[in-house]
Design a protein around this nucleic acid. Sequence first.
DNA 1: TTGAAAGCGCTAACAG
DNA 2: CTGTTAGCGCTTTCAA
Lengths: 338, 338
Amino acid sequence: MATNIRDVAKAAGVSVATVSKVLNGYTTVSQKTKERVLRIVKETRFQPNAAARALVGRRSMTLGIYLTTGLTHPFFASILSGMELALKAKGYDLIYLSQLTFNKDYSFVRHCQSRNVEGVVIFGFQEDDAYFKELLESGLPSIFIDMDIVGQRAGYISSDNVDAMCHSISYLRELKHRRIAFIAGIVESYVGRLRYDGYKKGLEIAGLPFREDYVAHSIFTRESGYSAMNSLLELPPAERPTAVVCCSDMCAIGAIDAIRDAGLSVPGDISVIGFDDIELARNVTPALTTIRQDMIAMGRKAVELLDELIVDEMFASPTAIVPTELIVRDTCAPAKEE
Amino acid sequence: MATNIRDVAKAAGVSVATVSKVLNGYTTVSQKTKERVLRIVKETRFQPNAAARALVGRRSMTLGIYLTTGLTHPFFASILSGMELALKAKGYDLIYLSQLTFNKDYSFVRHCQSRNVEGVVIFGFQEDDAYFKELLESGLPSIFIDMDIVGQRAGYISSDNVDAMCHSISYLRELKHRRIAFIAGIVESYVGRLRYDGYKKGLEIAGLPFREDYVAHSIFTRESGYSAMNSLLELPPAERPTAVVCCSDMCAIGAIDAIRDAGLSVPGDISVIGFDDIELARNVTPALTTIRQDMIAMGRKAVELLDELIVDEMFASPTAIVPTELIVRDTCAPAKEE
DNA sequence: TTGAAAGCGCTAACAG
DNA sequence: CTGTTAGCGCTTTCAA
């Protein structure tokens, strides 16, 4: 491997400028020299030094990913898989911006500037507004996933949460359910709010009345789903919901625990629908009917939008809404006759 | 934010060399100038350009992670969490080396050279020897996780697989089990082989005979665990194992499916122990008794060893074996009287 | 169509 | 103890 562009130039009998031009696709090089240079490059397996390229002021071809949720979020791997595809297509490298590294004095925004990171994708709950304010003001191109933050150089991507909820409810409606409850997530969060909105809209479309006492609150977790379901089960039997849609799979699994502990069965007595389609959903018994979010598409799209933002100064505030899919498994059954 | 070291030098009324010395902790700077420079650095929130630093030939402070397993491996997040800790402590950044990006003509080794990556951690099954050969020859410091590859500038980390198996068996022995079967993983793989060895050693320590017909083979997956267990269940009832240790949690879950489908119960009729302690293990019913691998420790240790390898030219072929822990949940019960 | 040379921001000799 | 200066490897005017 040639150590640098000078070695290649020497071997090809041209100047470094010419080699550089060939490498960067300039058309002001004769076909003959171009071929000669390319041959040497191939032979010597020369690869330009990325630091030098970045230094000289052009592209660093580096994107960052920053998680506010911690690494254990079940979607991290899928998002990354999706990003991988677009990263490869566009020729970017990905640097992991660890939450641990940053604080008030040294934000990830500054780190990105120092490392010449060209753009970042942010995923998670909105937890530290100070960072985001700085980020938006910095002009560093950024794409948020599941947070509706926009700015001159920032946009976001999210699943179609409202449509997904409508879909769940219309499916239950087809199964003749009329008493459909909802276990909401943190309503202050972006997805929590949208899923709640979607529940109401879904009921409306299905021609079902909205009942305050059919909404229980959770924080997306299994335990909170369990308690939420228990509060729903306190309704008089005749009023009891025959189906429950949940803000998350973990929450749905907790709800199923509660239903069972109350001596009822899923889906015999109560049908349950989750949200997310995490790995656990297809591995529990009965396998969970749920909404699948296309995190691969979201990751890919995030990088694509980021690239546009970076390449095109005029491209502002992009957003994308990714469709979801209802995955029918074993936790829903037709409602018993009323 | 000062754009470069010259601005800082100007503001502090010193030369760029002095600023550089302060920034790099040289002691040949008077206390007074040092303080002045530091004050300006703080005020202007100056951060040295990483590309320039890398270019000038010293450290790039970048490590890479390369997975041969794909992103969906359940340990990826934990390994990364562990790495995060050490990354922060040592001041490295992490770049994700996507399998997709590389091929015969352009290996991740070359990419690392071009990006000035100082070292890599490799995780997964040994699948592409060509890469590893090139890697070893390149002299790029590398640490493998769960693959016993060593070289002048390469070492590895793994759980204490043998000890873990001994632990499982001794636990079952305490529960009075004498007919303990094993569902092996891919025996050609590093962990597959070691766990098999551990099973034999565990039996020996427990004073139990090794029986060929108590070993079934799988490929670590749920489906293969299911078939493996079925073959074990074909033994005549009096000979049937009362306990099964498995090469992985997924495999154990498959085995439990098979036991149930045969009309038997876990742990009533047959006790089951997994390996890994993936998230699913505590979420299935009954919750799985299993061996927990400390992937956080492995990730952290990987970066620490890598750092030593990078910093100390003489530090060769490091290895580390990380202890495991038996997590007792609900899939083991005392053996029925014989 | 090609090459010489300046310079990106930094570090490390070396001189003072 | 401090400053001058020569590069690191590359891209990009600009001149030939």
